[in-house]
Design a protein around this nucleic acid. Structure first.
Lengths: 189, 189
DNA sequence: GTCTATAGAGTGATAGAC
DNA sequence: GTCTATCACTCTATAGAC
């Protein structure tokens, strides 16, 4: 890494800007010209780094996954893992761009021909499975309330996080972390 | 009502088609030409009935609210009202167009300059208040589990319905009604 | 690496004939 | 009521200069 230093910085700047604008306006709504202009570039300048708009979207999603994985830190289990997610929801309330990105794109990508459709289908099945596993661990520890099915609880948790994000985007006084925490408490013994 | 019969039928046809296409592709993604073509019209023909695209969207949302109000039938309370919503979720699974409409638009309308922004801000505050009232009624009947706050429960319920719709749109094997029902049971004594 | 210029297609909306 | 034709604009992407 020597002469490619400047190029990498531009690439990173583009990705951060695209993340914000895909969130604000959706993939269809944010144009390459708008994104490029916010980076102090023209749109062909941007396309030198990402050959097509779909490539840019893919890089944005990949980058976000990488950041998430790194931020998650050491692997956690059971209740600790869910408490960590409540904390993440609280911190997300300070990064509106990222919340918008996923709320907007996951709905938009519902259309089978959307460039991020496969990404979101895969992501949801993975996340639901993961959260359900945490509830199963809680159950194994004897700390899950009676009559609660870990698979249902996992799916509910993911739906709750998504739905709360939409409500928070429409009205920022919505208490995402508090509502999520209340739900968690009601599931435990 | 005599000579305006044919005009009303065309209007209704346009609204049904626009509902489906705004759902499939979002407000931005569905063009007036596409909607008009599916109605056997040209796009100026459509614009005779709805002067602008935003007017068409407003009429679509208004029509859906009217249909909902009528379908709701006699006003219900407490647990019965929530059970009725579980049933509605089950029936919605047979009308993908309507589910898509609200999932797609509520995320898209998160942007403050979206033509349906005010509609959704208002709708959510109204619906959350209404569902919270049902939980308060359940509490008054002594049937709400201890430590559950009706206001939290109402917000959670709405978030759950929205989040489950996105999951169902990405994977139709998702059991919306069952997951919702499991949640309801876990809230009751 | 970034630019100007442009191709080629699509958009919402309007004018005016029938 | 519905059409054809068109305006003015935007979009993604490419060609080629620097």
């Amino acid at each position: 890494m020597g002469e490619s230093e400047r190029g990498a910085a531009t690439r990173e700047h583009i990705l951060a800007t695209a993340t914000a604008m895909f969130g604000e306006s959706g993939y269809r709504g944010a144009s390459l010209r708008d994104i490029a202009a916010r980076c102090g570039l023209t749109h062909p300048g941007l396309l030198y780094h990402f050959p097509t708009k779909a490539d840019l979207l893919e890089a944005v999603l990949q980058r976000r996954d990488d950041a998430d994985t790194k931020a998650a830190g050491p692997q956690q289990h059971g209740v600790e893992a869910l408490v960590a997610l409540v904390g993440l929801a609280g911190r997300n309330a300070q990064a509106r761009g990222l919340v918008e990105l996923f709320a907007t794109l996951s709905a938009e990508a519902t259309a089978p021909d959307h460039p991020a459709h496969a990404y979101f289908v895969d992501r949801y099945s993975r996340v639901v499975r993961e959260i359900s596993r945490h509830f199963a661990e809680i159950q194994a520890d004897g700390k899950l309330r009676e009559g609660i099915d870990p698979a249902h609880a996992g799916r509910q948790w993911v739906a709750l996080m998504d739905g709360l994000q939409v409500q928070w985007l429409l009205d920022e006084s919505t208490d995402m972390a508090g509502t999520l925490e209340a739900h968690l408490r009601s599931q435990l013994t």
